[in-house]
Write a protein that binds this DNA or RNA. Sequence first.
DNA 1: CATTACCTTTACGTAAAGGTAAACCTCGCA
DNA 2: TGCGAGGTTTACCTTTACGTAAAGGTAATG
Lengths: 134, 134
Amino acid sequence: MSRCPHTHASARTYGIAELAQEFEITHRTIRFYEEQGMLCPQRRGQERIYSSKDRVALILILRGKRIGFSLAECKELIELYDPHGGNQVQLNSMLQKIYERRLQLEQQLLDITQMQLELDAAEQRCLAALDKID
Amino acid sequence: MSRCPHTHASARTYGIAELAQEFEITHRTIRFYEEQGMLCPQRRGQERIYSSKDRVALILILRGKRIGFSLAECKELIELYDPHGGNQVQLNSMLQKIYERRLQLEQQLLDITQMQLELDAAEQRCLAALDKID
DNA sequence: CATTACCTTTACGTAAAGGTAAACCTCGCA
DNA sequence: TGCGAGGTTTACCTTTACGTAAAGGTAATG
C-alpha cells in the first residue's frame, strides 16, 4: 500500500544520504532537526524514510538559516506552512506571527540594501587606494 | 587638547549606559564586543569613553546581526569600513571579501522575497480557514 | 558619613547548532 | 559466509554570543 494509489503529486520518498547530499549538510544535522521536532520521517525498521513534506521542511529550514533565523523561528515557519486547520484563536495567532515575520523581513531588506551601499563605498575606497599605488 | 580644535565633524563621546540605552542592548554586550576587538573605547581611569567611530561600529554590528552575520563576519565588515590603507595584496583580498559579501546579500534578498511569498500564501490559508468558520 | 547609582573586573554558566567518535545492525552479494 | 557499504544510536566535545552573579571602585547626594 501507499504505492502511489492516486498519484498524490508526490509519494516520493528520500533516504538520509540522499537529502544530505542534495543540500550539502551532514546526516547528523538532519537527525538533529528531527530531534528538534522539525522533521518526522517514517521508519522502515531502523531506517528513516523521508517524505517530500520533510524535504520541503528542510528547504524552509535552510532558507531560514541563511537569513539568520534561529531554528525555533524556522520551526514556526514550518508550522505556518503546514495545513493544520486549528480554531479561530490559533488562526488569529498565526496571522499575528505572519505579520511579525513580515515586519522582520522588511527590516532585513533595509539592512541588506544599506549594507550593499556600504560595500559599494568600501569597494571605491579599495579601488582608489589601488589606483594610488600604481 | 582634543577639545574640538577644528570641529572635526564629531568629537562627541558616549558613555556605556548611553549606548546601551540607544541601541537597547546590555552593558555586558558592549563590553563583550570590546573583548572581541570590535570596539576600542578610550579610558578615563576605569571608565570607558566611546567615540563616534565606536558608535558606527556598533551600528554595523547590530545591522549585521539582524541579517544573520556572525560576530566574526561583522568584524570583517567593520574592517572594510575602516580606512587603513594596506598594500596591494591586502586591498585585493578586501575586494574579494566585498565580492563574496555581495553574493551572500543577493542570495539573502532572494531568500527573503521567497519567504514573503510563502507568508502571503500562509496568510491566505489562514484567512480562508477563518472564512469557513463563520 | 552613609546611601544610592553607576561603573568596573573576574569568573563561571548556558542555549544553540551542530561535530565527532565508538560501537553496533543488516542487507546485498561475491 | 563473510565483508563492506550504508544505516543506526549514544554520548561527549566545541564554538558562539552573551547572561549572571560576586565583589568592589567612584562620585554625587542627603
